[in-house]
Design a binder for these strands. Structure first.
Lengths: 155, 155
DNA sequence: CTACATGCAAATCCTTTGCATCCAC
DNA sequence: GTGGATGCAAAGGATTTGCATGTAG
């Protein structure tokens, strides 16, 4: 979906289109990846827009409520925000090394269908993180935190 | 898994078994559901154990690192902690009314398998929340936040 | 005994909020 | 003109941390 198209939709819903809102949206459209609020804010400032970070939080919240972007916890401390555009994608996050990789949305289709059919629940699975251990860390430190294994220290 | 069995495992890993640790574990074993750190702490105090909440956070962290419990964000503000015991279960959380319902782990088996096979990634899907709109809210306020629909206000 | 766990209190840090001002419509 | 959006600054609240003390092994 193009910028002006989204803008028009939001305007049609009765919202006011301000410069902070327009530019925030533009940044997310161009990003092609997820960004923290802080990162979005930094880019806004870099573009010469003297906007407050609280406003950026409010704008992101608003875009989320309007189904334009998704909010995700990737274990980075701060949540990330990303455009909901097709094709959807999700992430694998390694609990050991922190590496984040991308996975296809197709894996989630079965679970979406079953949740709809069996529970009559409409799932919003737009940008997810699956935590676990990546291939590399599996070979490096086999099942270090597996229950039943023998670890060594509290940290 | 029984209390003493878990204790023995942890002791074998070289950890010290203190009263706060033993009783925290006991509370989680008896709970048969998820609890926030605050709730765990309250129960510890109610049992007459004058433990600090910071210690409770540390204990929960430790149990998590040792694969005994899972930590989940159910959208309640604070994360919840629950024993990893079979059969696993997960939750549907309604974004409208907040209702939380339980779903079977079997829905997740396909995605676990595919993540393992296709990405050689070992997923830790122990206690998840799927956010979305429950059946009741769907009929009450059809697709209020669907992209493409016409909502009304910022709040 | 000695290192690890705890108590206490303060700090962190993401996120939200109150209120006066401003501006999109 | 008017109500919604923003700036500013401060609060909020879950979680973490530093350090002295206590205690499990």
């Amino acid at each position: 979906m193009a910028l002006e198209e989204i803008i028009a939709t939001l305007r049609a819903r009765g919202y006011r289109i301000t410069l902070p809102r327009r530019q925030t949206l533009q940044i997310l459209l161009r990003a092609h990846s997820h960004l923290t609020c802080e990162q979005v804010h930094q880019r806004l400032v870099a573009q010469g827009l003297d906007v407050d970070e609280a406003t950026t939080y409010r704008t992101l919240q608003w875009l989320k409520e309007n189904g334009i972007i998704a909010q995700t916890d990737l274990g980075l401390g701060a949540d990330v925000y990303s455009l909901i555009d097709s094709p959807l994608h999700h992430h694998l996050v390694c609990l050991r090394c922190g590496r984040i990789s991308e996975i296809s949305d197709s894996l989630f289709e079965p679970i979406r269908r079953q949740v709809r059919e069996r529970y009559h629940f409409e799932p919003r699975i737009e940008h997810w993180a699956i935590f676990g251990i990546c291939a590399e860390c599996q070979s490096n430190e086999k099942g270090k935190i597996e229950p039943g294994n023998h670890g060594e220290s509290g940290e």
